[in-house]
Amino acid sequence: MRGLAWFVGAGLAVCAVGSPASAQDAGEAMDEALHDALGARRAGDVGKAQDIISSAVTAFEDSFEDGVDVYCASSPTATITYMALAASQKHKAIAVTDSYCDARFLLAYQLAEEGTYAAAAQAIERVLVNDPMNSHYLNELGFARSHAGDLAGGLEAYRSAQGCAGLADESDQPHWTALALRGQGWVLIEQGKWDEAEAAFHESLEFEPDSEVAQSELNYIAQNRN
């Protein structure tokens, strides 16, 4: 593993807040804000990116109806799953643009870049309230927790990420699964569980056969295990 690629990018999804017209406007504004924030980050202006996101998130949340569960529509399968979950709990729920969660995740990414992993983990946990089965976020939670010293919590998050990879878009499922397995392997090395770590990296190669990271970790295990 030895470091993960944090932010992959945002897609456009459904927004179901308020009336149809206001829902579309709110979703488009959130999407545009995330685009602008990413542009500011690429230009090296992290402060501007944070300001854009904070302002947009506040405005977007002001459009939510009280007492409604809010889920990010990160994939069609996830959206259906969340709506079914809410219905089973007799909760009123809405699915909103995934830019809402991605923007907040970007703030967590900044915390991790600064090396404040515990704070990053807490920020990701808050995003997961609105997209609890997002394999990408769960993988990054595993990264943040484990680098903050919470190896058990990191391993738990990586295993959850593996279990939830099937809710991602079909083309992304192998990557999130492999990433989760590599994360597990890294934590297991740190815990001194060499056999389990080796098995995790070998399994990850079933999903990303050309991964130099996995092969490097397998070489590391071969050279360092007792």
Results as ranks from 00 to 15, higher is better:
T177D: 00
V57G: 07
F207Q: 07
S88N: 10
L38T: 00
C72V: 00
G154Y: 01
S19V: 09
Q173E: 06
R41C: 07
C164Q: 15
C72M: 05
E140P: 00
H91P: 06
P76Q: 05
D69V: 06
E196G: 14
Y158E: 04
E125I: 07
A222D: 12
E140N: 15
L167F: 12
R159T: 14
F64C: 13
A16P: 00
L167I: 11
P20L: 00
Y158N: 07
A180R: 04
L181G: 04
N219K: 11
F201R: 01
A178F: 01
V70D: 03
A37D: 06
G3E: 00
N130G: 11
D31W: 13
N224Y: 11
L38A: 00
D102M: 04
E125K: 13
A157V: 03
A118K: 15
S19A: 13
A10N: 09
I94H: 04
A78R: 03
E170L: 07
L106M: 12
A152K: 10
Q215K: 14
E140I: 09
A73S: 15
S146F: 09
L4Y: 13
H202K: 15
Y100S: 05
L128F: 07
S19H: 09
A86M: 09
A157M: 05
A86S: 14
A86T: 03
R2F: 12
D195C: 02
N130S: 15
Q184T: 12
I52S: 05
V187A: 01
A199R: 12
G142L: 06
N139W: 07
W176E: 08
A87T: 07
Q173D: 03
A144M: 08
A165H: 03
W6F: 08
H147T: 13
G183C: 11
E206L: 08
K90Q: 12
T79H: 02
A148V: 10
S211W: 02
L151T: 10
G11C: 04
A214L: 07
D172Q: 11
C72T: 04
N130E: 14
A95P: 10
A10L: 03
S146W: 11
I94R: 13
Q122S: 14
S204Y: 04
I53E: 02
L85A: 14
H202M: 00
Y137L: 11
H147P: 04
A161C: 03
L218R: 08
M83Q: 11
L179V: 08
T97E: 05
W6R: 13
L151F: 03
D195W: 00
I52Y: 01
R41Y: 02
D210L: 02
D25Y: 13
H175K: 14
